[in-house]
């Protein structure tokens, strides 16, 4: 092997990436050539210098990343209301599909059902007179299939119930729209509608009615995505005694670690003795290691002992 060929092979030789027969030839050459040995020495010095300059991310950055990721993952549970299907058959397909994918958690049919639900709410809660909110339109859609009967000619007869979608539009400031959203935030069968409604209401927590709905959602909603959204809405009232009382109860009762983490963040934004006691209680019974760690860190930040004695 020539010096030129060996010089070209040295980087790969250093990393052990040469084919065995080439590696052997390089070693034979290095054994007899001082110049190429020097070249290898320079390669090793470069590698050592690069090793010394490797950046080590600090533990605090890793902890922050983990914290943000956990929150983001729990947020992933929040259903996205999609409006992909617009024709009745498409809506039916989506609804049907959702029956067989219960684990996918209500994301797909949410848009369709949300519209129906809002239509029903509109009829139930709002009396639209002339000159009211927008111009409600109607559009037929399938709500359930009663029977499916194939015949001998290769056709099929489907008996279905039709319902009519009613689209209401208006500004968020409109009292009627707010009433609809408050009702939708309590809609028992559709977390998709609830999460969308809470998302819209959460910036209006200055209203007592809205705040009550948010507190109710945080305390009773079965869906963690809705609870997390409602917690966001209560952020600016984290110092309010009633809100804090609710948060304390949620922290000790809620089954979802993401919710508990968010509650901890809200509670420690305003430090008080009651918060210390709650966190100390939680440390003793918390199963989730990350939530426990958050509690311990919060207690240390408040110069409080981690356990109760």
């Amino acid at each position: 092997m020539t010096c030129d060929a060996v010089a070209k092979a040295i980087p790969l030789y250093h990393y052990g990436e040469l084919a065995p027969e080439v590696e052997e030839s390089v070693e034979e050459h290095l054994h007899v050539c001082a110049g190429c040995r020097e070249e290898l020495g320079r390669q090793k010095s470069l590698a050592a210098a690069l090793d010394r300059n490797q950046l080590a991310p600090p533990p605090s950055l890793l902890a922050e990343c983990r914290h943000e990721l956990i929150r983001a993952v729990y947020r992933e549970e929040a259903p996205a209301v999609s409006h992909r299907a617009s024709d009745p058959w498409g809506l039916f397909r989506e609804a049907f599909h959702s029956l067989w994918h219960p684990g996918i958690r209500f994301t797909r049919p949410a848009g369709a059902v949300a519209l129906v639900a809002l239509g029903f709410f509109a009829a139930r809660f709002v009396n639209f007179g002339p000159g009211g909110l927008g111009f409600p339109g109607t559009e037929a859609m399938v709500s359930s299939i009663r029977s499916v009967q194939p015949d001998n000619s290769g056709r099929v007869q489907i008996a279905l119930d039709e319902t009519h979608r009613r689209v209401i539009s208006g500004r968020l400031e409109d009292q009627n729209i707010q009433r609809l959203l408050l009702a939708a935030a309590r809609e028992p069968d559709n977390p998709g509608v609830r999460v969308e409604s809470v998302e819209l209401l959460k910036d209006r927590s200055a209203s007592v009615e809205v705040r009550t709905a948010l507190i109710e959602a945080v305390t009773h909603d079965a869906n963690p995505g809705v609870r997390l959204k409602a917690l966001e809405g209560l952020k600016s009232f984290a110092a309010d005694p009633d809100v804090r009382k609710t948060l304390a109860q949620v922290l000790l009762k809620d089954q979802n670690p993401g919710v508990r983490i968010q509650v901890i963040d809200l509670l420690i934004a305003h430090k008080d003795d009651a918060t210390v006691r709650i966190l100390q209680t939680l440390v003793g019974k918390e199963d989730n290691s990350y939530v426990r760690m958050r509690c311990q860190n919060a207690l240390r930040d408040m110069n409080a002992s981690v356990g109760t004695f």
């Binding site: 950046l55 080590a56 991310p57 950055l61 990343c65 983990r66 956990i70 993952v73």
Partner: peptide
């Protein structure tokens, strides 16, 4: 989700180090 957390913790330090460098 606990298993997901376990999986993340097995790899996240090297992922962060890679991204950082």
């Amino acid at each position: 989700q606990d298993a997901f957390e376990q999986l993340v913790r097995a790899y996240d330090q090297s992922v962060l180090r890679l991204a950082m460098n």
